[in-house]
Nucleic acid binder design. Structure first.
Length: 290
DNA sequence: ATTGAGTCCTGAAGGC
DNA sequence: TGCCTTCAGGACTCAA
């Protein structure tokens, strides 16, 4: 399931195929994903040249020469595949190699096809004027970007102070920190040695200063994300890079999916447990995560 | 206002 | 083998 490292990996895969290229036509196989495609979606994209591809949290932002930005979210099961540019798939009709759950095809003027596939349809596409993407649309209200270098302990303390939710729920809240999902929250809490059940606000001292636990989290979150990014993300179920290859970080999980296994922290000796928190699986080591 | 529960969706996995 | 149930979870809506 694409979280920040997976989305960033996909963004990097799309750049060489799309930046500087012109969209010839867009074909939709249905009217909606999680939400309807915006009005005039295909018409507003046709003939436009891609000027750049950025990322915000789990969103991919494709800037166009029209002044609009195409906002892409992969949900749980979304993926892109690139066809045609290198001759692997012959150019031709839009759906030449159509697969089940292909919902949108972006055909470029060089006959490359960027195909969006999403079995669960939790994904999202929107078209927003680039000038207002931070205040209108899906990106409005997103919290701290965890790899921008702004994730310091004092900053985290400000964000968590007074919160009566668990630290697990707080780290999953995209309005606080944007880009983490269930996997990397579990991993970051394991790395930091913090129990997912502690109240977020209780990690902040009465004077507003960060506790040692917040300090460790501020270090662990970017560390875990960068490690995953280097590995090309984690491949579980539907995640694949744009070239179809798989990331490998799932082999380095320390907590997620390891219920009943020995904790691999040096000298810990605990056992990873699975519990349900806010309707989601939480994996942690009760021995060293306190 | 803040927080938590329910909802959407399909495919994989497990039970019998 | 095959049918059935359960689970996965990002972001949204709704209610307490």
């Amino acid at each position: 399931m694409p979280e920040l490292p997976e989305v960033e990996t996909i963004r990097r895969g799309l750049i060489p195929a799309m930046v500087g290229k012109t969209i010839a036509a867009v074909s939709l196989a249905r009217a909606d994903l999680r939400r309807p495609f915006p009005r005039g979606f295909a018409r507003r994209l046709a003939g436009r040249t891609v000027s750049g591809i950025e990322r915000r949290a789990k969103y991919i932002v494709v800037a166009l020469d029209s002044g609009d930005s195409l906002i892409l979210h992969l949900g749980m099961s979304g993926s892109f595949r690139i066809e045609g540019a290198d001759g692997r798939a012959p150019p031709g009709t839009l759906h030449h190699t159509a697969q089940k759950h292909d919902h949108a095809v972006f055909r470029l003027t060089n006959e490359t096809r960027i195909v969006y596939n999403d079995p669960r349809r939790f994904g999202l596409m929107d078209l927003i004027p680039t000038a207002v993407i931070d205040t209108d649309g899906p990106l409005a209200g997103l919290g701290l970007e965890p790899l921008d270098g702004d994730l310091s302990a004092p900053r985290l303390a400000v964000l968590l102070r007074g919160r009566r939710i668990s630290i697990k729920a707080a780290l999953l809240d995209q309005r606080i920190i944007a880009g983490l999902g269930n996997i990397y929250v579990c991993e970051a809490l394991w790395e930091a040695g913090v129990s997912p059940f502690r109240l977020a606000g209780n990690l902040v001292r009465a004077n507003g200063k960060p506790s040692a636990a917040i300090g460790r989290l501020a270090t662990a979150i970017p560390k875990v994300l960068r490690s995953a990014l280097v590995a090309g993300g984690s491949s579980l179920r539907n995640y694949a890079r744009t070239d179809g290859s798989l990331g490998t970080f799932q082999h380095r999980f320390r907590a997620y999916g390891r219920e009943g296994e020995k904790c691999t922290r040096n000298g810990c000796g605990g056992t990873i447990t699975r519990s349900v928190q806010n309707g989601r699986s939480t994996f942690h080591c009760p021995r060293h995560q306190r």
